[in-house]
């Protein structure tokens, strides 16, 4: 069972602190945590730091072990990270990109195993048709799917996804979020993802965290975290949470706060 604890977590650039002293209740196995907040609030910075790409202060424990003290290889085996932007100008084909994700630091893994894992993840995401296309010729959304395949093929316990649906159309947004939820519920593990679409977050995440300023404004289940007040304070908008005919909450925005 995977667990992640974040305590007095601060991160920034030089003297400028983006997030300061964040402490979260224990994040337990099976959690899909959506990180929400306005542009530039520190969602991506937080994910980068948790992935070990940026130094932070405070303590983050994964299964009781300090993340910042783990050797890079060990951390990489447990944490998968999907950045917001993926490179455009490469002739590397998608299948090779996914294989290289496995082989980069573990060239000893048997070829059969890697090929099966790659096959499975291309099917899981429904992107077989992209397997032999150069990354540089794919659209932003397609590149994002291949990036996600690179993360999933390594079967990490913790998924850190930075706006995984930002370049996807509606069908593929649902497809991707559905696959991620399925993986976390079936295989266990934890997923933290930065999102902008509040409705998508409310529907598919079992916990939400709203960032504002350098701190956590709200945290809890979707109905606890997304309220009229948090929308006004975090985004400066007047919004209502309504319930659709199927009983699911959805956000209706009325105006910007005056």
């Amino acid at each position: 069972m995977t667990s992640l604890s974040i305590d007095a977590f601060s991160v920034g650039y030089g003297a400028h602190e983006v997030l300061s002293g964040i402490t979260m209740p224990l994040i337990e196995d099976g959690t899909v945590l959506g990180i929400l907040g306005p542009n530039g609030v520190g969602k991506s910075t937080m994910l980068r730091a948790l992935a070990g790409l940026q130094t932070f202060r405070g303590s983050v424990h994964l299964d009781g072990e300090r993340v910042d003290e783990m050797p890079q290889l060990r951390r990489a085996g447990k944490i998968g990270y999907l950045p917001q932007a993926l490179p455009q100008g490469t002739t590397l084909i998608a299948y090779e990109a996914v294989i290289s994700a496995c082989r980069a630091v573990r060239p000893d893994i048997p070829r059969d195993h890697v090929e099966k894992a790659a096959e499975h993840v291309f099917d899981q995401l429904g992107i077989r048709h992209l397997a032999f296309q150069a990354l540089g010729k794919l659209s932003g959304g397609q590149r994002q799917m291949v990036g996600l395949a690179q993360v999933l093929v390594r079967e990490p316990k913790v998924l850190l996804l930075d706006e995984p649906t930002s370049a996807l159309d509606l069908r593929w947004q649902l497809n991707v979020i559905g696959v991620i939820s399925e993986i976390v519920s079936a295989r266990g593990g934890i997923c933290l993802m930065a999102l902008h679409d509040i409705n998508l977050a409310m529907r598919h995440c079992n916990q939400l965290m709203v960032l504002r300023g350098d701190r956590v404004l709200a945290h809890g289940t979707p109905s606890e975290a997304i309220t009229h007040e948090t929308l006004a304070e975090a985004y400066g908008i007047l919004g209502r949470i309504e319930t659709c005919s199927e009983g699911r909450p959805f956000l209706v925005t009325d105006n910007v706060c005056s």
Binding site: R48, A51, G52, L53, Q72, L73, R75, A76, G77, I79, G80, Y81, L82, P83, L86, P87, T90, L92, E96, A97, S100, A101, R103, A104, V105, P107, L135, G147, Q150, V151, R154
Partner: peptide, 18 residues
């Protein structure tokens, strides 16, 4: 393999353990 992974993005490669 590390260099191939690097062509898929520096942050990605780092997260693979490179």
């Amino acid at each position: 393999w590390q260099m191939t992974a690097l062509r898929g993005g520096e942050d990605q490669a780092r997260s693979f353990g490179v």
